[in-house]
Amino acid sequence: MNALSEDLKNRIKAYLPRYPRKQAVVLPALHLVHDEMRTVSNEAIVEIAEILELHPSEVHDTMTFYEFFKHDGDKLGKTRLWVCRGLACMLRGGYELLEHCEHKLGVKCGETTSDGRITLEFAECIGACDGAPACLKDDVHVMNVTTAKADELLKQF
């Protein structure tokens, strides 16, 4: 059983010296695994727990709190697009933008297009209110997203 490559395991272990306790590496480890594998499988949880000397349920407990990581059986698309629905964006067309993206991609929030290209999400305020309505493409802000700009954006992925 090897869900995580040696390379990935080593990158997780590289975080250990930063903290006085191994458990503190749970979030960095989840990010590393999630970024690379687009999901955190149950096997991956077991192997993270082994490295950090935790029970797998402790890793799972932390992971599920954040509702950020895709679980076993679910997988992120190549790009994750978050559309902000915070107040500043809502006041400047954020809801309409979200609907537009859902319609254009044929998926609901939280779902991935059937070709595995894009996962669409709603986001609570992403702190890009000077460019509302705004999106987050993986972890990069895209500001002042008109529906035309959204169409362009969706084509790029």
Partner: peptide, 29 residues
């Protein structure tokens, strides 16, 4: 002095200082 960046995972509550600490420690915030 060492400074280490630690990335969150999209939870508002991590801005509450003890929530932040719990999250830093690798637990639910």
């Amino acid at each position: 002095l060492d400074i280490y960046m630690h990335r969150g995972a999209g939870a508002y509550i991590c801005g509450e200082e003890t929530g932040l600490i719990e999250s830093l420690e690798g637990k639910r915030a």
